[in-house]
Design a protein around this nucleic acid. Sequence first.
RNA 1: GCAGGUGUGGCGGAAUGGCAGACGCAGCAGACUCAAAAUCUGCCGGGGGCAACCUCGUGAGGGUUCAAGUCCCUCCACCUGCACCA
Length: 806
Amino acid sequence: MAQAYNHHVVEKKWQDIWAEKKPFAASDDYSKPKFYALVEFPYPSGQGLHVGHPRPYTALDIVARKRRMQGYNVLYPMGWDAFGLPTENYAIANHIHPKDVTKKNVSRFKEQLQSLGYSFDWDREVNTTDPDYYHWTQWIFLKLFNEGLAYKKEMPINWCTSCKVGLANEEVVNGVCERCGSPVVRKVKSEWMLKITEYADKLIEGLDTVDYIERVKVQQKNWIGRSTGAEVDFAIKDTSDVLTVYTTRCDTLFGATYMVVSPEHPYLDKYSDKITNYDAILSYREEASKKSDFERSELAKDKTGVEVKGLVAINPVNGKEIPIWVSDYVLMSYGTGAIMAVPAHDTRDWEFAKKFDLPIIQVVAKDGEEVDVNEAAFTDVETGILINSDFINGLSVNDAKEKMISFLEDKKIGHAKVNYKLRDWVFSRQRYWGEPIPVVHCEKCGYVGLKEEDLPLLLPEVDSYEPTDNGESPLAAMTDWVNTTCPCCGGPAKRETDTMPQWAGSSWYFLRYTDPNNKKELASKEALKYWMPVDWYNGGMEHTTLHLLYSRFWHKFLYDQGVVNTPEPYQKRTSHGMILGENGEKMSKSRGNVVNPDDIVRDYGADTLRTYEMFIGAFDLAASWSEDGVKGCRRFLERVWKLQEIMTDDDAYSADLETVMHQTIAKVSNDFENLKFNTGIAAMMSLINDFYKKNSVTRAEYQTLLLLLNPVAPHVTEEIWERIGGEGYIFEQKWPEFDPKKTETSTVEIAIQINGKVKATLNIEKDEAKDAVIAKAKEEISDKLEGKQIVKEIYVPGRIVNIVAK
RNA sequence: GCAGGUGUGGCGGAAUGGCAGACGCAGCAGACUCAAAAUCUGCCGGGGGCAACCUCGUGAGGGUUCAAGUCCCUCCACCUGCACCA
């Protein structure tokens, strides 16, 4: 009788052995084939680890452990994305330095991760708040600044009218401040911006060279939102100015019946004396300033707007005078902040025209037939043919666009233009707990970057982390720190007091892991050349459009600067689904359905938690937590343990299980590569059911099972391996191999259908001829074919016979 | 609103266009036990039938096909993101 399975003893024992022997440290032997597995490093929040964290970590731990067994030099690192708002808010509320809060949270996270037995290379741990780390974050910013990719721009921020501080979007709830409930307005402030739009095309093109799951690629492309269209100048009557609009449908220019400008459009101020209802415009702008772009672009059932009286635009193709309106569905941040409205062929324009009773002129007809544009806008580009449009009549939409663009370019009233939905990256935060931006402002020289040798620019100690009441960061109150000298002319200068957003540190952390202690460079050329690109990066779908795009942008910039040697940072990207509470809702404190992984590790063991999270369901879909499911996985590991009692001293597979053994190795090997952990584990469960059915397992069979299960449940498999006399440690062993020929059987059961419905089954030799199989099948179901006329006979080899009969 | 995704037993889920429900959970029955727990064995989508078996069934409605959970169209519900949470 074997000793009972005690996860406390087993897990402690092996974690100690791994900590001492460090079998999972990446080697600097660059002659071996490498594999770089990466998971998104966590934000060390005060709540500690959540059961959602282990899902992706375990998945890539399985891949990493399997790769080591396959002979690769594996880098599987972990670190801390530790700057950020919650830590700062906690520090403010509790009068503790954010540095101390971070330290405490990191040590708790680390302890929790270690209790789960991950094969991270802890010698390469990084922390974005460490000056030796943010030194290089600042260094990259300087490079961007020196290349003209960082610039200052007036941007609206959320401004609490009562607290008098800038707020993050998340702190604004239904238009009011989350803390005090006062109204939040948009206040304009000069902010650092990064020109990610300069890399828009490269970010789209690069997607063709990498292996990302398709929906990530699609979503990034849509987010960048490249569109080809035209800019067209509409003269403003009795002025020398033109109102430039961006349109993707310049073919519909003859159907433009009015113009719309965004409430922030500069012409509204420029021509304030000509505008006869300027007060109404101002109050409309005031209202609009309370809404975010997001709220403004929502298809409000009631479109709002005001006619700009006193200004009239002239349609450049037919000289018609058309009115100008102002409405908040036009955003200053996209295109030119002004549009020509063609209500017959654009849904939003149509709704606006209906509401304010503006004329609707049809200029595109479906296959040449007019449709009723008073009922709905006609927007189909494929079947549209131009009408009522002078020189482009009769053309298809695409031909008409082309002809219109050459017309506009000839007359110098417009030109082709590519636009992107992607906007430049707002890089300033009026906050304390972030990387200081290494720039000073000198009255003589303007904005000047620090010298490289003056990095890192340390985040100074302050007494209060509260933003100041004029919207500046807390650093602005530190005059000693702010007042400095200009690195360029030596004259008096002031430091930038905004800090970087949390995205900064996470945009390049994977580079630092390759050479985490380098004091002279962000990483050595040799380390980067060997380890990059990341072979497999797994993270949440929610990071698809921000973190993933930002880090690709920085990487492409560093590639252009010759700092890194690959144009893309990540060769492969996959995503995991969320773990929901037992009630199917997102886990949260307020819902009271949060599960703490510590409790599961204590009661069932880390191996059980890991197995359960991999077995819970399809890896890329959300799944609900179930404690009964956890118990089922514990029972499975117990059954693996108890195979010790029925093991025979035989170092070969038994004849009757040979096929199943080879099939299981093939299945598990494949499933682990394709993130199908749930079915891989199911295959192992089936295998041990087979062992129990015959009440015996050979040593060879048992050892193969342990090797397959090891990446999922590393502690218990190491322990059993030792107990049944396996050679060395399991982490030193080779991944089991299978013979494809031995996964096949000579006979196979096929289904016999009549008209697609299964009526019987039949055992046949795999290579039996079609005619013979069909003859046997008809014999088998002869009673059901009586009185019927056979129309067709179909045989799909090794699968199915279908008799079509009337 | 825009973009992406998901929808299959009581539950989590499985299924290269080819036998829907693998594997697990829960439940039921039996074995073991003085008893319970644990463990082991069997059953386990709905309706009908003593049974062999028949029939319906993968969010709803249409379509393509010898054959549809899977492909196409329309619709519904839910989830994620929307740029200062990370």
